[in-house]
Design a protein around this nucleic acid. Sequence first.
DNA 1: CAGAATCCGGTATGATACTG
DNA 2: CAGTATCATACCGGATTCTG
Lengths: 117, 117
Amino acid sequence: MNDDGPVAACPIGPVVDIVFSRWTTPILLTLHNDGRLRFVELHRRIGGVTAKVLTDRLRRLERDGLVTRTYFAEVPPRAEYEITELGRSLSPVFASLAAWQSEHLGEVEAARGRFEA
Amino acid sequence: MNDDGPVAACPIGPVVDIVFSRWTTPILLTLHNDGRLRFVELHRRIGGVTAKVLTDRLRRLERDGLVTRTYFAEVPPRAEYEITELGRSLSPVFASLAAWQSEHLGEVEAARGRFEA
DNA sequence: CAGAATCCGGTATGATACTG
DNA sequence: CAGTATCATACCGGATTCTG
């Protein structure tokens, strides 16, 4: 038998929850590539997401230790976000995803085309 | 400038959509590890998902060419699902996720603990 | 500027009953 | 058995407004 329940069926469940909630990948990639950024700047570079949702995601990423938040109680206030070492350690994961995509996305699109029949 | 819009912010968007919709990872992993399975068997091994949702996911995976569906119009009817070569090609991706998790999940949990303060 | 608070609608998901 | 159909709901995610 090969049945240890749902946990065995998806041993990678935890990572998926941590890394692939919506908007988390563009956030992590942007902070990874562009370095420390203020809130507005990050917001601008990602695009399409509302401030509320972006804030929510950043909080979660901060909680999980993937990004750091530095707040300056000035006028106007400022908040800067930066990816952590732990966040950077996801590089190989993103690299493998990018590799798979560049190699196989065409096949997926072809399959979708065929499916319309 | 480093701003080519949302696409540049998340170049891996397409793969993420294809592979990390809910329940897709346990489905793919189970079919990868256990081979061709009928609907009920697959349903039983995954657990926690309803037949409706499982059907939806399988349709989508079939459409994307990651899984094949073979239907037998017998009595009682039978449907067998199997992962495709394209689906198997995701192995390295899952491997990198598993590796990251086994190495860094502890740090995430530690960060979460610290965050409660 | 950075974000909190509030309200609201759509989609995803779930439970249940039914069909070939 | 392998779904589909229907209904209910829960959870994002978005728009708007407000505050320090």
